[in-house]
Design a protein around this nucleic acid. Structure first.
Length: 800
RNA sequence: GCGGAUGUGGCGGAAUUGGCAGACGCGCCGGAUUUAGGUUCCGGUGGGAACACCGUGCAGGUUCAACUCCUGUCAUCCGCACCA
């Protein structure tokens, strides 16, 4: 058969669409399978081969499950709010709505050309007001449940663009847009209290099936640590300095304390502090440091001693000096630490530089060279002296602290509350009103969606205000509570908002009474399998698990974890082995590949390139190899004759059915395809096969190269869709060879092979091995010490 | 610095519980078809003159047997970055 992929592919794409065969039915009697891929951001650059890889994995799994009789939900949508679209709008003057719609149309067309079996009836767009209505609704629920608060914080601000930037947009301390230096600016920030869910997010990991490295990254991101809060009295005032430590056992080794430059105690005791101007100068210096400098100067500790505030060690009433230094940050713990230079390297470096005492309290290491962080016998520690185990000395110390009321057990997380506003146009408006009398007032649910107003230009306002702040008709409103004049919040939500619950909307995308119908949620949730990139396993996944857990707590979803299973695909690199980028000119456009080789070849190649989870470079000649494979499959039509089973091929078929099925479930697509290639080679060696066997072959191939498979299926005289046909089954007995080749070793060295019946006894096998011409010279005249026999694998004769 | 991974032919990569290292594909070499190139088909392809021997980053170890397990070490990639 001539492999005219162009016409074959458009023909079957049309047939599938006309018959609407991939839409999920809300038929609760069938077993369901909800497979989810990360919906794309519809950028102007169009689809990337990376998208194809990200979707092809679960595409194959979904197609197989469908053929196995599952009710499959494999949806697609667009995460369309975001900065690039807004920047395009600023540059070109084209409305972001139009830019978004154009890009979505382009993506849709490209995705359809690849032949993905998405359910196109459930497409969602996060910028659609019928979608963001519910994003706002969830925000209000959180607000009304006390999970939203407002605080001032330092943000990255570009004085040239007059824009507040996210950390991602200000890497290296430079503005991503104009490359000028970023400064830190104090601003009102909306926060979501995600830290309240830190423990739940951590515990939830015990009951989900995520790849181990994904779990690990989430654990690290949450960053739970246990330790103690301890209060140190200040000599000169009626004040306590509260610190957090994971090593309360070393409290007797404290020789100084350090507080963050922004610590409020400095402002409170300006009058008491003798060297306040020196401290102010240091603070200013720190504020000027860009993030880049801060991270670069890790080794060199700076700081200033506070004259006029002295701390007292609550255990032995020793007076200890207090310093400010930017190696302590306000954002973690209490912004103040007790420094134990003998047993903490950072404190050690600081003490060396400032000539502060170092008191060893744990035996071990060489304190003259560096801090000792290991375990050992406690010394110089009063009631802890003689303890040899870190855990028990910590426990004893905690007991003591609580008994005396000077401290208590505590827990800290690296994870911070989620800064939830952006000074941008193209995002969900935050549905809050600022009333002079009633303060922050949530919009009533009946007023949702709070739509984005029309603006003339999308440039941010003076001082980094949102473009919405310029629209008086939007800003000025009545307070929903007291009816008095009020002003709307003009910031919008971050891009992460829409993607934090999209998997719920797919379940019931057109519902206007609720974000989704509870019965449907009950049937479809949780997502059975979620695949995406490693770059999203921390932020996006943590955020969405948080939202889901919140919705569970208020009774809106039936399960407390959204994703039962999570895997990740590796990147596709350029042909030169580095990340694809426009500037390097190594970007591969999937359109070009589809045009030149066909969608089936593209899909097959991307899954054949290597291990699905690892990065692999693009290779044009390997693409051709996959095309050749499909052409050779098409040519099978010429040698397929008759019905039934070819005895010489039966075993190979059963083995391949088994292997392909198992490999798909394990995301080992490369070896699944290799197995089909091997079978193809076997068929050509044999010279013929039956039409039934050809149909079985293309059924296995269907998830990978569905267009060609359907075409051959039709050529064989079938009128149904192969995509909906039954997945082939294998007979375990028929996967076993009658004859097996066994390796024969002498003293562990491979010396030859032996072909024997699979069910041969050990004795017979060893006997046959000894008699081999290739073996005899090695064992003649020697004493046989040991004979090892692994049935079906090898015989090893050990001689002396 | 911490955490996680990964090192296998010329290349991408295979290898169940430790059991014939290099499946499958690319590339390359030779041959056939072709006026020629391309395509297609057949054969070969870790190194090595070799049925010896050597080969899975490097150095050791355990074992009848190690890509696989253990100890040390080097390199690369990714994530977090002064987290007290």
């Amino acid at each position: 058969m001539k492999y005219d992929f162009g016409s074959i592919e458009s023909k079957w794409q049309k047939k599938w669409a006309d018959a609407d065969i991939f839409s999920a039915k809300d038929d609760f009697s069938k077993p369901k399978f909800y497979s989810l891929i990360e919906f794309p951001y519809p950028s102007g650059a169009g689809l990337h081969v990376g998208h194809i890889k990200a979707y092809s994995g679960l595409e194959v799994v979904s197609r197989k499950r469908r053929m196995q009789g599952y009710n499959v939900l494999f949806p697609i949508g667009f995460d369309a709010f975001g900065l690039p679209t807004e920047n395009t709008a600023i540059k070109t003057g084209v409305h972001p709505r139009k830019v978004t719609d154009d890009n979505i149309a382009k993506f849709t067309d490209q995705l359809k050309r690849v032949g993905f079996s998405f359910d196109w009836n459930r497409v969602i767009d996060t910028t659609d007001e019928n979608y963001y209505k519910w994003t706002q609704w969830i925000f209000l629920e959180m607000f009304n449940h006390g999970l939203v608060f407002r605080d001032t914080a330092l943000v990255n601000y570009c004085p040239s663009c007059k824009v507040v930037l996210s950390n991602e947009d200000s890497q290296g301390g430079k503005c991503d847009i104009c490359h000028s230096d970023i400064i830190q600016k104090s601003k009102d920030v909306w926060y979501l209290r995600i830290t309240k869910y830190a423990d739940k997010l951590l515990e939830g990991l015990n009951k989900v099936d995520y790849l181990p490295n994904i779990k690990m990254q989430q654990e690290n991101w949450i960053g739970k640590s246990t330790g103690a809060f301890v209060n140190f009295k200040i000599k000169e005032a009626d004040e306590e300095l509260r610190i957090y430590t994971t090593r309360p056992d070393t409290l007797f080794g404290v020789t100084f304390m350090v507080i963050a430059p922004e610590h409020p105690i400095i402002e409170k005791y300006r009058a008491t502090i003798k060297n306040i101007s020196e401290l102010d100068a240091y603070k200013e210096e720190c504020a000027k440091k860009t993030e880049f400098e801060r991270t670069q100067l890790v080794k060199d500790k700076t700081g200033v001693k506070i004259e006029g505030l002295t701390a007292i060690n609550p255990l032995n009433n020793k007076e200890i000096p207090v310093y400010i230094s930017d190696y302590v940050m306000m954002g973690y713990g209490t912004g103040a630490i007790m420094a134990v230079p003998a047993h903490d390297q950072r404190d050690y470096e600081f003490a060396k530089k400032f000539g502060i005492d170092i008191i060893q309290v744990i035996k071990g290491g060489d304190i003259s060279k560096e801090a000792y962080t290991g375990d050992g016998e406690m010394i110089n520690s009063d009631f802890l002296n003689g303890y040899t185990n870190k855990k028990s000395s910590i426990e004893r110390m905690l007991e003591y602290l609580e008994e005396k009321g000077i401290g208590e057990k505590g827990v800290q997380y690296k994870m911070k509350d989620w800064a939830f506003n952006r000074q941008r146009y193209w995002g969900e408006p935050i549905p809050i009103v600022h009333c002079p009398k009633c303060k922050m007032v949530p919009l009533p649910y009946s007023e949702l969606p709070l739509k984005l107003p029309e603006v003339k230009n999308y440039e941010p306002g003076e001082g980094g205000e949102s473009p919405l702040a310029k629209i008086d008709s939007f800003v000025n409103c009545k307070c929903p509570k007291c009816g008095g004049p009020a002003k709307r919040e003009t910031d919008t939500m971050p891009q992460w908002a829409g993607s934090s619950w999209y998997f719920l909307r797919y379940i019931d995308p057109k519902n206007d009474k609720a974000f989704a119908d509870p019965e449907k949620l009950k049937y479809w949730l949780p997502v059975d399998w979620y695949n995406g990139g490693m770059e999203h396993v921390t932020r996006h996944m943590i955020y969405s698990r948080f939202w889901h857990k919140f919705l569970y707590d208020i009774g809106k979803v039936p399960c407390d974890e959204p994703y039962a299973k999570r895997t990740a695909q590796g990147m596709i690199l350029g042909a030169n082995g580095v990340k694809m980028s426009k500037s390097l000119g190594n970007v591969v456009d999937p359109n070009d590949v589809v045009r030149e080789y066909g969608a089936d070849t593209l899909r097959t190649y991307i899954l054949f390139m290597g291990d699905y989870g690892s990065a692999a470079p693009w290779s044009e000649s390997s693409v051709k190899g996959c095309k050749r494979f499909l052409e050779r499959v098409a040519d099978l039509t010429a040698i397929a004759k008759g019905k039934g089973v070819t005895p010489a091929l039966e075993n190979s078929f059963h083995k391949t059915i088994k292997k392909v099925g198992e490999d798909i479930e394990a995301l080992k697509f490369n070896t699944a395809i290799a197995a089909m290639m091997t079978l193809l080679n076997t068929i050509y060696e044999h010279g013929s096969l039956t039409e039934d066997e050809l149909n079985t072959f293309i059924t296995l191939l269907c998830p990978f190269a569905p267009h060609l498979a359907e075409e051959i299926h039709e050529k064989l005289g079938y009128s149904d869709f192969l995509s909906l046909a039954k997945w082939p089954e294998y007979d375990e007995k028929k996967t076993i060879d009658d004859l097996v080749e066994v390796a024969v070793q002498v003293c562990g060295k491979f010396r030859g092979t032996l072909t024997v019946p699979a069910d041969i006894s050990k004795e017979e096998l060893i006997d046959a091995a000894r008699k081999l011409d290739r073996i005899r010279p090695y064992i003649e005249g020697k004493t046989i010490v040991k004979e090892i026999c692994v049935p079906g694998k090898l015989v090893n004769i050990v001689v002396k």
